[in-house]
Every structure is written in C-alpha cells, then in structure tokens.
Design a protein around this nucleic acid. Structure first.
Lengths: 123, 123
DNA sequence: GTTAGTGCAAACCTTTTGCAGCTAT
DNA sequence: ATAGCTGCAAAAGGTTTGCACTAAC
C-alpha cells in the first residue's frame, strides 16, 4: 500500500506526505511504519530516495521511462527536472577517471536558476 | 575564531566537529553560537556549506585554489574529491539549455565507488 | 511457537529559537 | 540606553528505536 501511495502521489513526496496520504487509506497507520516501509522499498530497489537539500527526504517510484535529475536553486529553492541523459558524458568521464559509477537518477545539482539570476543579485 | 577553526580543521568538518575544536580554544563556547557564526560566515561568502547526504552539514573555507566536488558512494559512504573543472562542460550545457548556473564548488554526486563496484554486488 | 510486521510512545540527532545578560558604542 | 553578540536551555523538525501485540506460517 505504501508503494501504491508513492506511485499515486507522483512527483517526489516527502515521508510525511506519503504518511498523510497512506493514512487516508489505512486508518491508524503509523509514521514509523511508513518510514520502515519506505526504507524496505528503497532497499529492494523499488523506489528512489532523494535528497533535495531541504532536510527532508523525498521518494519516488523507480521509473526507467522517466529518469531525471534535479536542479535546485540555492536562492529560491525551486526545483527543475532535467533528463538523465544530460549527465551521460559526465558519467562516462567519472567512470573512466575514477572508477565511479554515477547514479542514473535523482541526483541533486545545486546552483542558481534563471529567474534568480535575472533578478540580478551578484553571485 | 570560528573561521580559524574551520580553516585549521581542514577538510569538511561538521558543525559538531567545529564546535568541539572551537570549544577547546574558547571555554564555555556554546553550540548555538557555532551555528550562528557558521551561518553568518556562509552568508558572508567566506565558507561553503556542503550537504554530504548524511544528515549533517559540512563546512569548508572557500578556497578558489581548491575548487572541487564530491563523489559520494551510496554503499560505503566514502567521499572522493574531483576537480571542479570536471563539471565545466555540464555547467555550460545547463546554462545554455536551462539558464541554470551550476554551483562551482562542493556539489555532491551520488553513485558507487570503484571498490564497492569491484566487490561485485549487482547494481 | 516462531517469524515478520504493526501501533504506540519515547528517544534521538541536528539545528533553531527565546530570553536574559554582557560589551562597546 | 541601544545595538549586537553571547550562553543557556528549551524547542523544533525529521527520523529511529524499544516493546508489546497481532497475524501468518
């Protein structure tokens, strides 16, 4: 049911959001159970866990058809999704030079988004 | 003194590590003061704050001569540093395609390190 | 009857905040 | 006295854990 809830919510809901929604289906559901299941599903490779830098983890069903990474603006906190293939070249480079196998989904890249840049605050 | 402590520690100490070390110099120093100063120094652009995905923030003096990013292994938690210029091409691409100005230092990239990959666990 | 998963509540950890006091302007 | 920074203690927020209980094999 937890997995269905994550899928149903779409996007990248936080543990608390999953909890709220799942509890609507299973009365009496406890937050600890949600965390335990989220963790188990993550270990099982069925969901991704995401660190958006906000202090709370996000979750999403693993979906090969919609691999993407996140551009997080350090000023406004806005999140933009970019297709995973944008990092293909970088991934190849890192694999070659450091033997490091870059994750293929839900990496978080921090920077300044277009609108915050155009507001003209010096970097 | 906080700034000196971060510089003296080197690497990417956590707030708690800075606190411990700084307290050795200033008896009675409080954790709240460390957080307040770390925040102020970060706002002033003198130090970078880093999200290593461990739930506690890291800090480092901003040093144009040693710009780098972090490769964090999702299995062993090990951190490898890579020169910032590795991401130059990606940064240019993102700027062009999304108007997104990628941070130049201390980004965190998650994946699997060489030794964990060679231990042969399927990914 | 042993294992796995649950609710509940309390603990945990990092970080933030309210407040009173000190220092220098 | 006023503004700014401090210590202290307590709160906040997200997450984890101990324990007793239930359901399943």
């Amino acid at each position: 049911v937890i997995l269905e809830t994550v899928a149903h919510l779409g996007g990248h809901p936080t543990a608390h959001e999953v909890f709220q929604e799942a509890r609507a289906r299973l009365r009496g559901l406890n937050q600890a159970t949600v965390y335990r299941n989220l963790d188990a599903l993550h270990d099982a490779g069925l969901i991704d866990s995401i660190d958006p830098g906000t202090g709370q983890a996000g979750f999403a069903v693993r979906d090969a058809a919609h691999l993407h990474h996140h551009l997080v603006c350090s000023e406004c906190g806005g999140v933009t999704e970019v297709p995973a293939k944008v990092l293909d070249r970088l991934a190849a480079t890192l694999l070659q030079s450091h033997g490091f196998d870059l994750g293929t989904d839900h990496l978080t890249l921090v920077g300044r988004c277009r609108s915050c840049r155009s507001k003209g605050v010096p970097g």
